[in-house]
Amino acid sequence: MKALKIILVILLFLCLLDMPYGYYQFVRFVSFAVFGYLAYQAHQKGNKTEAFIYLALALLFQPFIKIALGRTLWNLVDVVVGIGLVLSVFFEPVKKNK
């Protein structure tokens, strides 16, 4: 899962550059798929909060109904989500022993 997150971070940060429109569509498809997978994995582990966050991100990035936020706001979203993913790679939640 860490590799998927790192790849997605790179794709999101590349969105800050002036790329062809097809690239942004590609990132939306990949983001939708990865966030959907991460939501499923979090749900399987019983982490409802994390599952909800990933599900919300999957819906935000979904490629079927375009959410028009404007380039500046999308860039901000890409950076915040990218930083959040990087932090989630390095600071995984501590597992509680039951």
Rank of each mutant, 00 (worst) to 15 (best):
48 K>S: 10
72 T>I: 12
50 E>M: 08
4 L>I: 08
51 A>G: 05
30 V>L: 04
72 T>H: 08
84 G>N: 00
87 L>I: 07
41 Q>I: 10
51 A>D: 05
61 F>M: 11
63 P>D: 02
12 L>F: 07
20 P>R: 01
14 L>Q: 04
81 V>W: 00
1 M>S: 12
34 V>G: 03
62 Q>P: 04
76 L>Q: 02
38 L>C: 07
72 T>P: 01
83 I>V: 13
49 T>G: 15
24 Y>K: 07
58 A>T: 06
69 L>S: 06
97 N>R: 10
70 G>P: 06
40 Y>L: 08
67 I>D: 06
92 E>P: 10
72 T>G: 09
34 V>N: 03
75 N>M: 07
51 A>N: 08
56 A>I: 07
84 G>D: 00
60 L>T: 10
4 L>A: 13
32 F>W: 14
36 G>E: 09
54 Y>R: 02
61 F>I: 06
78 D>I: 00
81 V>Y: 00
55 L>W: 10
13 F>I: 07
75 N>S: 07
56 A>E: 00
83 I>C: 02
65 I>Y: 06
46 G>S: 11
48 K>G: 03
3 A>M: 13
27 V>K: 01
6 I>F: 12
6 I>A: 14
13 F>E: 02
34 V>I: 15
78 D>E: 05
49 T>E: 12
16 L>K: 05
10 I>T: 09
14 L>K: 01
96 K>C: 09
4 L>C: 08
80 V>I: 15
76 L>C: 10
91 F>E: 10
82 G>I: 00
57 L>G: 03
21 Y>R: 07
3 A>I: 15
32 F>Y: 14
34 V>Y: 09
89 V>K: 02
93 P>T: 11
44 Q>H: 09
5 K>E: 11
42 A>E: 15
33 A>Q: 05
5 K>R: 15
57 L>N: 05
25 Q>T: 09
50 E>Q: 10
72 T>R: 09
85 L>G: 01
86 V>M: 13
45 K>R: 14
93 P>R: 14
32 F>G: 07
61 F>T: 12
68 A>I: 13
62 Q>S: 14
36 G>I: 09
19 M>V: 14
98 K>E: 15
8 L>Y: 08
73 L>T: 14
56 A>Q: 01
92 E>A: 13
18 D>K: 12
11 L>A: 12
78 D>S: 09
30 V>D: 04
97 N>T: 14
65 I>D: 06
78 D>K: 01
26 F>E: 02
3 A>R: 14
33 A>W: 09
65 I>S: 07
32 F>S: 04
48 K>R: 10
96 K>R: 14
6 I>N: 06
6 I>T: 13
45 K>A: 13
35 F>W: 03
35 F>H: 10
62 Q>A: 11
39 A>G: 15
79 V>Q: 01
20 P>Q: 02
26 F>C: 04
27 V>T: 05
32 F>Q: 03
45 K>G: 07
56 A>C: 05
25 Q>E: 08
91 F>A: 11
42 A>K: 07
60 L>S: 05
72 T>F: 10
85 L>K: 01
48 K>F: 09
1 M>R: 11
76 L>G: 13
29 F>T: 04
74 W>Q: 07
51 A>Q: 10
41 Q>Y: 11
91 F>R: 15
81 V>M: 01
31 S>I: 03
53 I>T: 04
85 L>H: 02
